[in-house]
Amino acid sequence: MMFLILLLSSSITAASATNYYRDFEITWGDGRGKILNNGKLLTLSLDKASGSGFQSKNEYLFGKIDMQLKLVPDNSAGTVTSYYLSSKGSTWDEIDFEFLGNLSGDPYTVHTNVFTQGKGNREQQFHLWFDPTIAFHTYSIQWNQLHIVFSVDGIPIRVFKNEESIGVPFPMNQPMRIYSSIWNADDWATRGGLVKTNWSDSPFTASYRKFKAKACVWSFGSSSCAMTFPSSLSDSWLNQELDSTSKKWLRWVRKNYMIYNYCADVKRFPQCLPRECKHN
């Protein structure tokens, strides 16, 4: 079986040594975002005056994106550190990791969402089985024509399948950049806004390293390309599905660490759960 993907003016990029100077740009924060260690490390900080953020120089249409993050330590209540893919426009697509801070000693909440054609409301939330502030951990997004897989240290925590066959929109046509930012969201982030940001603990800093991308890079040249990927190509993220071991890990995470699933929220969807919930 062959997967044929037609991508306008695109090319394949493989993982290479991290260089944040080469791959990203600080987009806001007035100096609160910094690239350090000859491009091997990036930090974003938040204080009472402002947060900060960066974006990738490339746009991607399908890919496997890995980023190592070390989250804000100690009392991070009220803060949100985001790491996501997004396109532009009023009918944008988006694939979200958001890390909701908490009081020291309490677990972070990992908030995930998928937007298609400008519509989200597909939240799933998890706690982690480790303290994400002590060391770096790898947070991955695998996005291909079959599904979107959110993973932590190689362990899948969420799968959003392509269910276009039953009328569920799926991100297929809009190239996306990688974004990350840190900002104050104490009106909702921690216990629904009950715990406010303690600015005496600022600045709050998140750190990034070891970015890797196996992806189709979108450009605006005049040529187009057609690429075929045989299903026998075991390393191809473009047709890779979860194996039996990964499915077991996914069930383990859902059983032990999932704290919210929109597909189980009958109060939010009293008439009918979203169509994809039968399969996701």
Rank of each mutant, 00 (worst) to 15 (best):
A215I: 06
Q125R: 15
G192E: 02
R177T: 05
F136M: 06
Q271G: 14
K161F: 10
D96C: 02
F170S: 11
D235L: 05
L6Y: 14
W28Y: 13
N198L: 04
R122N: 13
W188H: 13
I26C: 11
Y208I: 03
I26A: 14
L233A: 14
N19C: 07
N184H: 03
M67L: 15
C225S: 14
Q174N: 13
F220A: 07
S180D: 04
P203F: 03
W188A: 08
Q142W: 02
E164A: 05
I148T: 04
N256Y: 10
S140W: 05
T133R: 07
S224M: 05
M258L: 12
L194C: 01
G192T: 05
V195C: 04
N198Q: 10
M1K: 14
H127G: 01
C263W: 03
Q240P: 00
I182D: 07
W252T: 11
A226P: 01
T112A: 12
S232G: 06
M258F: 00
R209V: 01
S56Y: 05
D23A: 12
R158I: 01
N58Q: 14
N113L: 03
E241S: 13
S181Y: 04
N19Q: 08
F24W: 14
L128Y: 06
S219F: 06
R32M: 11
H137T: 04
S200M: 02
S45A: 15
L44R: 09
G193P: 03
E241Q: 13
S151P: 00
Y108C: 08
D153Q: 05
N173W: 04
L46N: 08
Y257W: 12
L250A: 06
N121F: 03
L242N: 06
K64E: 15
G101H: 11
L42H: 07
Q271C: 02
G29A: 06
S202C: 03
D186Q: 06
G53F: 04
T18K: 12
G120D: 13
C272I: 01
T197K: 07
S50H: 09
A189R: 08
V80W: 06
P169H: 09
Y60V: 03
S16R: 15
F211H: 14
R251P: 00
G154D: 01
K196M: 01
F211N: 07
C263Y: 02
V168S: 15
P230Q: 10
G39L: 10
N280I: 09
K88R: 13
Y21F: 15
S236Y: 02
T138P: 00
Y84F: 15
M2W: 08
E94T: 02
S231V: 05
G53H: 08
V80C: 05
S165D: 15
I134P: 00
W183Q: 04
L8C: 09
E123W: 07
G192Q: 10
L194A: 15
D243E: 11
N58V: 00
V168G: 14
Q271T: 13
H111D: 11
V159Q: 12
T79K: 02
K40G: 12
F99C: 09
I157L: 14
L6T: 12
W28E: 12
S86A: 14
F115S: 08
G89F: 04
G31A: 05
V110K: 07
V80T: 07
F115C: 04
D93F: 01
K196T: 06
E164D: 11
F170A: 10
A189C: 09
G33Q: 12
N37R: 15
V253Q: 13
D74I: 00
D243I: 11
I259W: 12
S207H: 08
A189M: 09
A15S: 15
I259H: 13
S181K: 04
Q125I: 00
R275W: 00
